[in-house]
């Protein structure tokens, strides 16, 4: 029973907060660049507008284009259950398995990449191909980061990880700080941000994520944007709750939940500022230079393991 409540709370929270975080980062970037930027809630307006528009399909496209947005958001939303943002539930049937979490996200990406290929546009194909290569190259880093966390905390269940870090007064282990840098790089990559990708451009040869969803309009685009936002929230949540889990509720009390939600909002605000600043301070890298970045993430995570072994 408590599980179903958890599902509802977590999903609703994720759905609500994701566009906001998206807008937050946009705002931070704009401010950093000396612009006023769009309103914080702009993303909500955008989604609402898209839902009202009609769907336009390419004559070349097949059912893949039609099902991809739904599958995409379904899998991302399912993945959101694995990262408790406000409340740590009791483990149920392997919910929270970090590997499953990662692969649910990959599944979403898989269909998005297929959809990119479906219409037969040159941009979509290029985007898919780049997306899949980037995701392949970052994968060892991701897994090793996760493995390092699992290695430090001796569990591979995300809620349990949070519970463990929550139980300890300050940084459970200094090594977690090392990991967090890697985790940050993963976050940047997976959410298609500078220097890996540029979320702002639409018709440049450098783009990756945007190229794949180029053919979408209307409600379908809204679903795609939404799932992208959710994914970003999840990864941010993962980083935040491993490093600074304070405030996470462990019991179902309305006050605790509210506090937790507030705490999470504040923490994610800080992170959004960091991301925005980071994005403003770096330029986009060449595609073939990216492995250097990933190697950094990999090396740091590996270092964590080595340090942990020596301790």
């Amino acid at each position: 029973m408590s599980f179903i409540i958890y599902v509802l709370i977590n999903t609703v929270f994720v759905l609500l907060i994701s566009p906001l975080l998206m807008g937050l980062i946009k705002k931070v970037k704009a401010l950093a660049q000396g612009r006023r930027g769009v309103p914080l809630l702009q993303i909500y307006f955008l989604l609402a507008k898209l839902l009202k528009k009609e769907n336009v399909y390419s004559t070349n496209s097949s059912f893949i284009t039609r099902i991809a947005p739904y599958l995409n958001i379904t899998f991302t939303a399912a993945a959101s259950l694995f990262v408790p943002l406000v409340f740590i539930p009791d483990p149920v049937a392997g919910i929270g398995n970090v590997i499953l979490f990662l692969y649910l996200l990959v599944m979403a990406k898989f269909f998005m990449a297929l959809a990119g290929l479906d219409a037969g546009s040159a941009f979509g194909g290029m985007g898919s191909s780049r997306e899949m290569s980037i995701s392949a190259v970052i994968e060892p880093g991701v897994i090793i980061v996760v493995a390092a966390i699992a290695f430090v905390l001796k569990t591979y269940n995300i809620p349990q990880m949070f519970a463990l870090t929550l139980a300890s007064p300050i940084f459970n282990s200094a090594t977690l700080l090392l990991i967090s840098i890697s985790l940050f790089i993963v976050l940047i990559t997976e959410t298609s941000r500078v220097p890996v990708d540029n979320p702002e451009t639409h018709l440049e040869l450098t783009m990756v994520h945007e190229a794949m969803i180029l053919e979408y309009t209307g409600p379908n685009l809204a679903l795609m944007e939404m799932s992208h936002a959710i994914k970003q929230t999840l990864l941010m949540g993962l980083l935040i709750n491993i490093l600074f889990p304070w405030g996470l509720a462990t019991a179902l009390t309305p006050g605790g939940l509210l506090l937790a939600a507030l705490m999470f909002f504040v923490k994610s605000l800080v992170l959004a500022v960091i991301i925005g600043l980071f994005e403003s301070l770096t330029a986009k890298w060449r595609l073939f230079a990216l492995p250097k970045l990933f190697m950094l993430a990999y090396a740091l995570a590996f270092l964590t393991i080595v340090v942990e072994l020596l301790v």
């Binding site: 290929l117 194909g125 191909s129 392949a136 994968e139 991701v142 090793i144």
Partner: peptide
Amino acid sequence: LSLFALTSALAAACFVKAFG
């Protein structure tokens, strides 16, 4: 482990390509 992860991701990339 990391190489195994790489393998698995590359497989997905490969099948996106093949199916596409």
